[in-house]
Each structure stands twice: as C-alpha cells, then as structure tokens.
Nucleic acid binder design. Sequence first.
DNA 1: TACATTTGCAACCGATTGGTTTCTCAAATA
DNA 2: TATTTGAGAAACCAATCGGTTGCAAATGTA
Lengths: 106, 106
Amino acid sequence: MRRDIFQAIADPTRRAIITLIALQAMTPNAIADNFHTTRQSVSKHLRILTECELVKQEQQGREIYYTLEIKKLKEIDKWLEQFRKIWETRFNQLDKVLLTIKKQKK
Amino acid sequence: MRRDIFQAIADPTRRAIITLIALQAMTPNAIADNFHTTRQSVSKHLRILTECELVKQEQQGREIYYTLEIKKLKEIDKWLEQFRKIWETRFNQLDKVLLTIKKQKK
DNA sequence: TACATTTGCAACCGATTGGTTTCTCAAATA
DNA sequence: TATTTGAGAAACCAATCGGTTGCAAATGTA
C-alpha cells in the first residue's frame, strides 16, 4: 500500500475533490453530488487522501466534514523547487543570448 | 491510455529519472545503471515520459539521449497556483491574529 | 421505539500498472 | 563478414486501482 502525495494527485477525480474542498469543508455526500460517481467511490478517494494526510476529517453529528490540508500540497512545491532553479537559469541564459544579439545589432 | 503529467510523476522511479536527467541528457542504459531494475523497465518508463512530453529523445548513432522538458513541469506549478493563493491568504490571516494578540497584550 | 440518513468497510470485478523475459532491428566493432 | 552492443516492442504475470454492490454502525427524527 504505497501511499504518497504524488500517487494521490495522480487521479483526476481526487484532484477535483481537492479543488472542491479547498475553500470550504464538505461532506462525502455533498462531494459526490459534484461527480458522476457513487458516494462509495468518493469515500474511497477520501480514504486515500486521508491516508497521505492531504485531507482531514471533522465529525459533526453523523456528518463528517472533510477539509484540505493545504500545507501538505507544499511537498509538491518543494519537489518542483529543484527544477524551478534550472528553468530560471535557462531563462537567464536565454536573456543573455538575447542581450548579446541586441548589442551586436548596435 | 490516459497519459497525463500527474500520472507520469506518480511513480517514484519516474520521478528519480526526471531528477537524474534534469542536468544532463542520458541514455537508457546509463539511466538503468542508477536503479535496481532492468533497462527494459526503464525503457517503459521513458516511453510514458515521452508520451506526455516530459522527455525528449535525441538519437546519436545507435544511442538515444533523453533530455528533460523542464517547461512541461510548469503544468504542475500551474495547478498548484490556485492553492498557493489560498495558503498565502491563510498565513496572512494568521499574521493578523498574531498581531491582534500582540496588541491586546499591550 | 421504529425508521431514515450519513457514512465507512468488505467483497468482488474488469482494467491498468510495473516488471520480466524474449525477440527483433540497427549501429558499431573485430 | 561475423559478432557485439544499444535500444524498442510484444507477450506474459502478479499486484494494484477505481468502481460497484451490499452490509453494518452510528446519529438524527417521527
């Protein structure tokens, strides 16, 4: 049972759930209303999201509200960091090239 | 055959390949040397990465060098954008709370 | 108390995944 | 020319995935 954040966001439905509950907590039933699938299927997705701590439960009577743990998404941001450095460098190099061409035209 | 970038980076071996070839192009054999798996398995991963345009091939004799298409990784960055706004807002709100507490102590 | 609602969980199913083995093809080398 | 090397493609396999159905537990309501 490999359960990491990258595998969690691989599924388009799970990404949609994340976007959906980003602004306000929602119950499984309310979430399922937004998709062409069953509540149970959403429930399974929520379990996966919970297992990798992307989502948190808040029991309220018999209803369970799911909220997004936004800070967990920063792990993806952190992984991208190493490439961000590279793509910025490459753009800088491109800038230099353009600058050189500009100067030569003068 | 759903082939999107999120599914591509879901596999840890593929993420490692991406990191490996980020700085310099490499052949399948050279890549495979870095993992406890066969060349054929790496080849399959490279095919998936190629299909979603995360990686580009450069034939050189009988060797094929694979390079990373860093700009494709920006699609993930783009998806994160919507949440970045939220997490910055939440931190700002937290700042306000802390500021209020500070003022009350005065 | 009896019934309805909300939810999680287990069992099952077809499709997909990641890996291995085998095969073929093209390029380099003896 | 014969052999070795680098690589992709196909066939196969066990494991996992996403979805459905059915059931049980807990909470709310008549």
